[in-house]
C-alpha cells in the first residue's frame, strides 16, 4: 500500500525534516504546541459519549478483531501456549468464518520462530518485542542483537522500547540515534516504537516523544509495554493520533498508532476507534495504521459479536482462553 492509496495529500518529500544534530532535534520538538491536559481529557470524554449501535457496532467489532496484536509476554510463555494463541489468531471463532484474523501475534523473540511456523499461510504477522523489553535497560549492542535475532527468526514487526531515562533526562539525541539504529537493524520488518507513556507522565512529553520517534523512522508509535501501572489511556491515544495526523500532513509519511495495555472490553476498544475516526480520520481505521495490543480483548469482542448474532448475552466459556 502506498501513501497515496490512503488518501493523504503527499507534500514535497523535501519537507521531511532531516535531523542532523541534537540541537536541531531539540528545536523541532520545542516548536510543537503544548497540550492542555484538561482540554485533551475533555475531548476524549466527549467522544466517549458517541453511541455506536447496530450495524456500526458490527463493523466496529470486526475492525477491532482485524486490528488486534494478540499478545503474550509472560515469563511463563511456552511453545504450547504460543501455538494455541496462533491458532486463535488465524481463526478467532472457529465456528464463524466471517470473523477476520487478527493483525499479528506479539511474542518474545525466542518464540518468534515457532509462531512463524504456526502462522504460515495466514496473513497474521509475527511481532517481537525487542531491545531489552520492557525496561530498555541494556547497551545498544545488546538491543541491536536482540532485534537482529528476532528479524532473523522471521519477525515481521519489531516492537522496541525507547530509553525513557534518556528521554526524561534530556538526552534526546541518544533516544533518536537508538531508534535509527534499530530501524536499520529491522531491515524490511516494520518498527513499532513503544514510548511507555505511563512513564513519560505528561501529554507534552507524549507529543514530543511521538515526533521524535517518527522523525527517527518509526513505522508505528505505540503507547505502552503493558508492564507499568499506567498503560494506554484515551487522552494519550488522542495526543498520539494528533501527532501522526500532523506528521503526515507536514511530511507526507503515514505512521501508525498502537494502543496497548489495559484494553479489555469491546466498549473500550470502540471508544478508541471513535477517537481515531474523529482525530486522525477514517484513513487510519485499518490494521496497517491502527492496532490494539491486547489479549483478553479478543474474547470480549467475540462475545459481543455473538451476542449481536444470537440476540442474547453469551457465556465467557464460549471462547477459548488463549
Amino acid at each position: 500500500m502506498s501513501e497515496a492509496d490512503i488518501g493523504v495529500r503527499l507534500t514535497d518529500p523535501s519537507r521531511l525534516p532531516t535531523i542532523s544534530s541534537e540541537t536541531q532535534l531539540r528545536a523541532v520538538l520545542a516548536s510543537l504546541a503544548g497540550v492542555d491536559a484538561v482540554g485533551a481529557e475533555a475531548r476524549v470524554a466527549k467522544l466517549a459519549t458517541r453511541s455506536i449501535k447496530t450495524s456500526s457496532k458490527r463493523r466496529a467489532l470486526d475492525l477491532i478483531v482485524s486490528m488486534i496484536d494478540l499478545t503474550t509476554l509472560e515469563g511463563a510463555d511456552t511453545p504450547g501456549r504460543v501455538s494455541a494463541m496462533c491458532a486463535k489468531a488465524r481463526r478467532p471463532d472457529p465456528r464463524d468464518l466471517s470473523v477476520p484474523s487478527v493483525a499479528a501475534v506479539c511474542v518474545y523473540p525466542d518464540l518468534v520462530e515457532g509462531a512463524k511456523r504456526h502462522l504460515e499461510g495466514s496473513s497474521v504477522a509475527v511481532a517481537a518485542v525487542a531491545t531489552a523489553f520492557p525496561s530498555g535497560r541494556a547497551s545498544l549492542a545488546v538491543k541491536l542483537l536482540d532485534v537482529s535475532e528476532a528479524v532473523a527468526a522471521g519477525a515481521d514487526e519489531i516492537d522496541m522500547v525507547i530509553d525513557r531515562g534518556a528521554f526524561l533526562s534530556g538526552r534526546l539525541g541518544q533516544v533518536f540515534d537508538e531508534i535509527v539504529a534499530v530501524k536499520a537493524a529491522c531491515g524490511s520488518a516494520h518498527l513499532k516504537v513503544i514510548l511507555e507513556t505511563g512513564e513519560l507522565v505528561t501529554y507534552d512529553n507524549v507529543r514530543r516523544a511521538s515526533w521524535l520517534a517518527m522523525l527517527a523512522g518509526a513505522d508505528f508509535i505505540k503507547t505502552s509495554t503493558g508492564k507499568v501501572p499506567v498503560a494506554a489511556t484515551p487522552p494519550v491515544a488522542l495526543v498520539m493520533l494528533e501527532a501522526v495526523r500532523d506528521f503526515a500532513e507536514s511530511t507526507g509519511r503515514v505512521v501508525g498508532v498502537k494502543v496497548a495495555g489495559g484494553i479489555r472490553s469491546a466498549k473500550d476498544a470502540i471508544r478508541y476507534l471513535v477517537i481515531v475516526n474523529e482525530t486522525a480520520g477514517a484513513t487510519w481505521l485499518r490494521p496497517e495504521t491502527f492496532r490494539f495490543g491486547a489479549s483478553s480483548l479478543l474474547n470480549d469482542v467475540l462475545m459481543q459479536r455473538l451476542k449481536q448474532t444470537r440476540g442474547a448475552y453469551v457465556r465467557p466459556e464460549e471462547f477459548s482462553g488463549d
Binding site: I52, K53, S56, R90, V99, S122, T283
Partner: peptide, 20 residues
C-alpha cells in the same frame, strides 16, 4: 490463499448509525 480473505472488514466505512 489465506483464510482471512473471507473477512476483510470494510475499510474507511466506520460511520455512526442513527442513535436517536
Amino acid at each position: 490463499m489465506a483464510e482471512n480473505e473471507l473477512a476483510t472488514p470494510p475499510l474507511g466505512t466506520f460511520g455512526y448509525d442513527p442513535a436517536p
